[in-house]
Each structure stands twice: as structure tokens, then as C-alpha cells.
């Protein structure tokens, strides 16, 4: 996993100077600028993400919480003086207990949350990509008012996400919301959106799709610019239909970009905290909770349970890692490598 740190060239050339240095030196000479280009990013990520991440993995094997994390609890008195007492139940290594407790359902609703998360992720990403691709290919054509359409369609991205979440929550309000007003206007009974898990999840998905399509659209629009127009020209001369051109030129040309946005989109959506947290609040009765929001409520309400939170974090990480490796394999079979 280490990248730049794996480059031992400058320091280790000195002591040996036997058979190996020339190769290392050559490697250094050849690659130093590549390493130099990635170094700043790697340092920032190592400090801010990887240190907490590895610490999190370690914590998931302990029972550390906010209350037992220090060896002794000190009470300062306002009149001066500090009394320190040994923490009677200091944290300890507990092996796989956290995982057992989470996976067997003793704590939280891991399997239910995972199920909801998978549905949520799949539907959201599919809609993001489908709608984003459709809109991008329309907006990629020259036409009147193209700039205006582009700006209007991208606006949902420009509003701070939590404000949009409130807006959608208002729209789906069971008594005062626009959604039920429209349904009533066309003669359908109003829906108690948040009384049922599927309708509740539906409101969150609508919100998230609305929020996420502009990003997808812009990314794909950017990707379409790298497809040379000569290809389309040649295809038209050959008499290819619009669909054939889309299928055989646009889609393959978008592959590097769409591969990236689908992969990262999946990861982000899987961990998309604010929408569920704000729009459905997990209602009804926690049934529309996804893994991150469920883990947050389980571990961070009241005394914060860092080891439990880390356990969920590691489980989420594992699921996504498996997904990414699988995704890479599928792509590799089709000739893409990263």
C-alpha cells in the first residue's frame, strides 16, 4: 500500500554501493519527478486519513469509548486541586467481539442497514448515471440556449446540500407538502411518506438523485469533449444512426471518465450521510437508516463509542474494497487497467 515511502533510493544508496545501487539509482533517476509530483498529496493523505484509518482498524478490536479511553479520570476542583482516580473499567483489547456483536445483531441492525444501503446505492447511482448521461449527450449538441440549460440544470449542485434536503423535506411533508397537494389535486389520496420504509426511502432517493445528477452530467459533458468529432463525422458518412453513434463512439469514448465517476459515485453514495440523516431521519422507526447513519446513531449519541464506530467503519471499508476489486476485475477483462 505504501507508495512513495517504498522508494528507498536516496538514503539506501550510500551504505551498500555493491550490486544493487545502480538499479535503484536508475529507478530514482527515471522516476524522481513522478514521485515528486505525487508526494504532497501522499503526505497530506497519510497524516489526515491514513493515520486515523489505521487507528480505527486497531480500535475496532478494543472496547474503547469516550468514557474509558483514559487510564485515570481527573476531576479539577474550582477551588484548586485535582483528584485523579484510576478508571475502573479502562479500555482493553477484546479481539473480534465488536464484529461478533455487530454481525449477529446484538448491537444495531447491521443486516437491515446493509440491505437498505445496497438498494439506496444501486438506485441512486443508476439514476445519476442514466439521467446524467442522457442530459449530457443532449447538452453536448449545438443548439439554442445551450448555456442557459446548462446553468439551470447544474443549479441543484450549487445550493448547499443541507438546504436542498430541507426543501425536499418540506415538499414531502405529509400535511403541508407540495407532493401531497399535487396528488390530492389529481384525485389521489395523500401519502404518509414517512410511515412506510419504502416510501420514506423513495423520498431520500428522489432528493439524492436530484442533487447528484448535475455532477454526473458535468463530468460526462467534460468527458465528451475528449471524443474527437472526426469519429462522428466518419460514422455519419458511413450512415450510422444516432443510436449507433452513441453506442459505438460516445459510450466507448466516455469509458475512462464514466468508470471513474461510477466507481467514486458508488463509494460516495454508499457513505452519503446528510441526505438520509436530514430527509428521512431514519423514519419510520429506523427502517430507512443506511449503514453510516445507523452507525452514527448507534455510536455517537450520548457517550461516544469509538470502537463501535470504528467497527462499522471497517465493515463499510471492507464492503467497498471488495466492490472496488471486483469492479476492477470486470473492467480488466474488458481491457481497462488501473
Amino acid at each position: 500500500m505504501s507508495t512513495v515511502t517504498a522508494d528507498p533510493a536516496p538514503s539506501s544508496t550510500r551504505p551498500g554501493r555493491s550490486a544493487r545501487p545502480p538499479r535503484l539509482r536508475r529507478s530514482w533517476d527515471k522516476h524522481w519527478y513522478a514521485w515528486a509530483m505525487v508526494l504532497p498529496v501522499v503526505i497530506v493523505l497519510a497524516v489526515l486519513i491514513f493515520y486515523p484509518l489505521f487507528r480505527g482498524i486497531w480500535l475496532s478490536f478494543t472496547n474503547l469509548t469516550e468514557a474509558n479511553q483514559v487510564a485515570e479520570i481527573c476531576t479539577r476542583s474550582i477551588t484548586g486541586g485535582e483528584v485523579c482516580a484510576d478508571n475502573p473499567n479502562k479500555w482493553e483489547f477484546i479481539g473480534l467481539d465488536n464484529y461478533v456483536r455487530v454481525l449477529t445483531g446484538q448491537v444495531g441492525e447491521f443486516w437491515q442497514w446493509t440491505g437498505v444501503t445496497l438498494i439506496w446505492t444501486f438506485v441512486c447511482v443508476a439514476c445519476h448515471f442514466g439521467l446524467g448521461l442522457g442530459l449530457a449527450s443532449m447538452l453536448n449538441r449545438p443548439m439554442r440556449a445551450r448555456g442557459l440549460y446548462r446553468v439551470l440544470l447544474v443549479l441543484p449542485w450549487a445550493v448547499p446540500a443541507f438546504v436542498s434536503a430541507f426543501a425536499w423535506k418540506f415538499i414531502f411533508n405529509e400535511r403541508f407538502g407540495l407532493a401531497n397537494a399535487l396528488l390530492t389535486a389529481v384525485g389521489i389520496d395523500p401519502v404518509s411518506w414517512f410511515a412506510d420504509r419504502w416510501t420514506a426511502l423513495f423520498t431520500a432517493i428522489v432528493t439524492n438523485v436530484w442533487l447528484g445528477v448535475p455532477f454526473m452530467m458535468v463530468a460526462l459533458l467534460g468527458g465528451m469533449q475528449t471524443i474527437p468529432s472526426e469519429l462522428y463525422e466518419a460514422a455519419e458518412i458511413d450512415g450510422a444512426s444516432a443510436w449507433q453513434r452513441f453506442r459505438n463512439i460516445t459510450l466507448p469514448g466516455l469509458r475512462p471518465v464514466s468508470m471513474t465517476v461510477v466507481l467514486l459515485g458508488t463509494i460516495w453514495t454508499f457513505n452519503m450521510f446528510p441526505i438520509i440523516f436530514l430527509v428521512t431521519e431514519g423514519q419510520p422507526a429506523g427502517q430507512s437508516e443506511i449503514l453510516v447513519t445507523g452507525a452514527y446513531r448507534a455510536a455517537f449519541e450520548g457517550i461516544r463509542n469509538y470502537s463501535l464506530a470504528s467497527t462499522y467503519g471497517v465493515l463499510i471499508l471492507s464492503i467497498l474494497l471488495v466492490f472496488s476489486l471486483f469492479y476492477r476485475r470486470v473492467l480488466r477483462k474488458q481491457g481497462e487497467v488501473w
Binding site: P52, I267, N271, F273, Y296
Partner: peptide, 10 residues
């Protein structure tokens, strides 16, 4: 990719 996988809340 891995940096994006660990939940921000944690």
C-alpha cells in the same frame, strides 16, 4: 479510493 471509503463521521 480507500481514502474515500472510510465514513467522514468517524
Amino acid at each position: 479510493l480507500v481514502t474515500q471509503m472510510f465514513p467522514v463521521a468517524i
